[in-house]
Amino acid sequence: MIETDPFGKQLVAFLPNLRRFAISLCRSRDLADDLVQAACERALANTERFEPGTRFDAWLFRIVRNLWIDHIRRQRTAGPQEDIEQRQDLVGACGERDVEVRFTLNSVAQAITDLPDDQREIILLVCVEDLSYREAAGVLDIPIGTVMSRLARARKNLAEAVGINPGLPRSPVMKGENRNDKMRVC
């Protein structure tokens, strides 16, 4: 059967994924919905830019992220009406943190939320959305080597934050490590 509008259909199908990625980016459901809407608009206006044979969701994530970066940049240059600089708790300089989220998500989700922006987004793309390193590198516009070093750092931080330490006895010595203790590894 010939699908009359596969692009639109797929866009709708990926809305939950786009929303999840956007929520993680800006840590606010309201902002995320606006972001996803803007991304869909841009995607629909640029359908010819999608390369067949590549992952549609990766393409969409890239649009979402670029719009978000634009948004942050504009906010930074737009002056003090949002006062983001004073909100020290918002690493991502995002408008409003959805407080209720903090209570409904589990500790792993919270730990992911608390990661630095660049580490959080890469965990989302690779671990949660199953993009390959190469695809993630394309979304983030960084070399694949940077994807790997950032992703490894992110996961070690996450593991430390939630106490993942598989295969090893949880001794006091292990617990005493901190994330800056790079010397332990090598």
Binding site: P16, V108, C127, R155, N165
Partner: peptide, 23 residues
């Protein structure tokens, strides 16, 4: 165990954010 850490973080991250997809 170092490899397991990366296996585990991937699975846990995915699981933790799974519910958002179901909203």
């Amino acid at each position: 165990s170092r490899v397991a850490l990366f296996l585990e973080t991937r699975v846990q991250a995915k699981e933790a954010l799974g519910p958002v997809l179901d909203e």
